[in-house]
Design a protein around this nucleic acid. Sequence first.
DNA 1: TTAGTGACAGGCA
DNA 2: CTGCCTGCCACTA
Length: 109
Amino acid sequence: MKPFTKNVIQIIKQIPEGNVMTYGQIAKAAGSPRGARQVARILHSMSQKYDLPWHRVINAKGQIAIKDDEGFFSQKLMLQDEGVDVSEAGKVDLEVYLYWPDPLFDEEI
DNA sequence: TTAGTGACAGGCA
DNA sequence: CTGCCTGCCACTA
């Protein structure tokens, strides 16, 4: 397994309940700043085998980026079940629920 | 090998 | 805030 894939899996498993992360964030943290799409691919293919909280991963616009209606609804439902406020269109307030693993970010605000 | 595709991101209208 | 366009990179036909 590639180190990037391994890192992505590790990072996603660290997202606390009630929080979310964006694909770009994860890609950057995993060592590939331009690999957002690969993160999405990994989620799609590995989530079922590695028991990953894939529903806590959304796009940079704060919206559920799933095209399949069934998957879209599932993600929305699971997030709401964790206490995350999700709008009708599947939009999440990143200012409130975004999980930032780097502590330096807080000091720069 | 080239072309098309996608659970993305960032810039711009 | 939303929609469209371009850049990205791995995978598939």
